[in-house]
Design a protein around this nucleic acid. Structure first.
Lengths: 218, 218
DNA sequence: AATTCGACTTGGTCGAACCAAAACGAATTA
DNA sequence: TAATTCGTTTTGGTTCGACCAAGTCGAATT
């Protein structure tokens, strides 16, 4: 029933609070436990309810993260279609091209210092492939956070969650890490000098190289 | 159970074909009908199955459209949060800025003729507000189709589906339509002349005006 | 050959029951 | 008094059997 959803949407059931017991709900709505359970599982699948086995369902006000969870399974299917990964990667490049342009034009001092910190973390982790992988992602993450629009960090999470499986299995040599670091540095420098065109070029070069690298290594 | 999902994912159940009856499935998996139903409804909520009341469930290979459906309900919640609409609109502006830049740089002759056709449709519908609204959306849609990446048209559908409710209720005078048309023409002209900066400026001006217009009319 | 009608199939709902784990409270202990 | 322990109750997870109404399909009729 959508009646249950309405009660959650209306905030009648507070956020992060457990749902009433199924047996109460069935009495309240004058329906059987079967339908109550189905309604609950439906809402759970939509992300409005968090459902830990054996625990009381918890009302969750959906955020952009829950949106990712909900889409995740479908996206995985789409990635298996021919060209799926490439399409998603293209979208990522498109987004980040815009991000670095904007960064070059509008980044605040604080944004730039964040970026610099991320770059430094890259450098520090040059000899630790696993750590470098994380700082690599974090560097790009800074770009998504510049605009203060919560949708973008969510997109970043999506890209990393859905694309990194294709990256993870490839061996990351120290040489490779070094070239990634230099790419990042080039992007940073261009942003620092307020040169959107160069920033965009550096980013495209960076991501194209990464794509080629993955293509070769399968 | 995730076992059912595996059978669908593996293509064992063909696309667009009805699912086996619940009673068969419960026998096949050695479980009760309740569990089967829950599994089915779970898959339905994920978009892998289309579920018409009283009809046999139909296996649906998910596409970018089903992804929108799945996210739709959650997005609506997010839009109700303070700043939700603005964040989404900002994202749209960000995307389209990139799109018009790319269009100015890379649009093929065919792309441009599509755009011209859409623009002409705008002009023809100037005195028909309802029709103009549709051609307005269609014009922007052309931009999303230029890159031949199926993700972008899906994004366009998302933007229009989620944002247009805020637009629909406002009255669209002929004057307003005319100014929208002129904006579109300015964007088109800039693309035609391969001037990405001007195209981007024209688009930003266009969408900013639209936003202001909505803000004023509530 | 097309239509009609009736029996069978099948999804939707219900109720009762059982199990295991969580939640709760009382009794015990330090 | 405060913390721990332990047994009872609550509650989600699952199963079974049953019924209804709408869809499906085939046989009989026109």
């Amino acid at each position: 029933m959508t009646a249950l959803e309405a009660r959650i949407a209306s905030g009648e059931l507070a956020n992060n609070k457990p749902l009433p017991p199924e047996r109460d709900l069935m009495e309240e709505f004058g329906t059987s436990r079967t339908v109550v359970r189905e309604a609950i599982s439906a809402l759970a699948n939509r992300g409005l309810i968090e459902l830990r086995p054996r625990f009381r369902p918890v009302v969750r006000r959906p955020d952009y993260g829950t949106l990712l969870n909900a889409t995740g399974t479908i996206v995985r299917y789409l990635l298996n279609e021919p060209g799926g990964v490439q399409n998603l990667y293209q979208s990522r490049v498109f987004i980040e091209r815009g991000l670095v342009r904007d960064a070059a034009l509008n980044a605040t001092k604080e944004n730039i210092s964040d970026l610099k910190a991320a770059l430094l973390a890259n450098e520090k982790a040059l000899d630790n492939s696993e750590e470098f992988f994380r700082t690599d992602i974090a560097f790009h993450g800074v770009l998504y956070r510049i605009g203060s629009n919560p949708i973008f960090p969510a997109m970043h999470e999506g890209f990393t969650a859905w694309l990194s499986p294709n990256w993870a299995r490839m061996t990351r040599s120290d040489d490779h890490n070094r070239s990634v670091y230099l790419d990042h540095k080039a992007i940073y420098d261009a942003i620092l000098e307020r040169d959107p065109a160069r920033a965009e070029d550096a980013l495209v070069a960076h991501l194209s190289a990464a794509w080629k690298y993955v293509e070769e290594t399968f």
